[in-house]
Amino acid sequence: MQVLPIYSGATTQQILSLGKLVVLTGPSGVGKGTLMQKLLERHPELYYSVSATTRSPRPGEINGQNYYFVDRSQFEKLVAQGEFLEWAEFANNYYGTPRAAVLEKIKSGKLVVLEIELEGARQIRRSYPNALSIFILPPTFLELENRIRGRGQDSEEAIARRLNRAQAEIQAAGEFDIQIVNDDFETALHQIEAILFA
């Protein structure tokens, strides 16, 4: 993983006033990744920040495109160096947003979108209150469970952990500027587009 040096000169708040930072979050399995993928296909002018993670790549995932895949000690070193805008541990793996690339894109006036977990989204909200935060909700908890099970990627123990965490995450939806229910995919996508490009 190549991490750019931390941007210096202007303060982070001054940089954020030049562009816009949008945070998209929600529980695992809610479809935020699929929504993000379609959003980027339809709006190539958006800048999607690729996160770093210590988890192993899933089939078809490409290093530097889906995630920067790094080992735990390397991730911890980057944390110590202040290289992340936010970072959190989820399902026994670290996830983080490289700081320099995001601030550089915002400084150039780009609309930057982060698709991150709840703890990271909370860090962004505390540090950058001007960021727009969107929480994606499932139509029902049963539907969320069906989606997680339908992936066929996790053990029963991992599914139980994800579902327990999802319950707590859904309760946090009210902390965010906007809540969108991903019941019908196209409707949810249009709602996000309306917010970003109003």
Rank of each mutant, 00 (worst) to 15 (best):
F141A: 00
I124C: 01
R165H: 13
A121D: 04
T140I: 04
P129A: 05
L111D: 11
K107D: 13
A158G: 11
F135W: 07
R125T: 07
S127D: 14
E156H: 04
I148W: 09
K107A: 05
S133N: 06
S155R: 00
N164M: 05
R162V: 09
I148E: 01
D154C: 09
A121H: 01
A121E: 03
F141R: 06
E117C: 12
V112S: 06
I106V: 12
L144K: 09
E117R: 14
V113I: 13
F135I: 09
E119A: 12
E115M: 04
L132I: 07
R122P: 08
G120P: 05
S127R: 10
E117W: 04
Q167C: 07
S127H: 11
V113L: 10
E156S: 10
D154K: 05
E117T: 06
A160W: 02
R162Y: 04
N130S: 13
T140D: 02
I134T: 05
L144D: 04
R125H: 13
L114K: 06
E119Y: 12
R125G: 08
E143L: 04
R125N: 05
L111E: 04
N146A: 14
I136W: 00
R162S: 03
L163G: 08
N130M: 15
L132F: 09
L111W: 01
R161K: 08
V112R: 04
K110F: 12
A131R: 06
D154A: 10
A166G: 02
G152S: 07
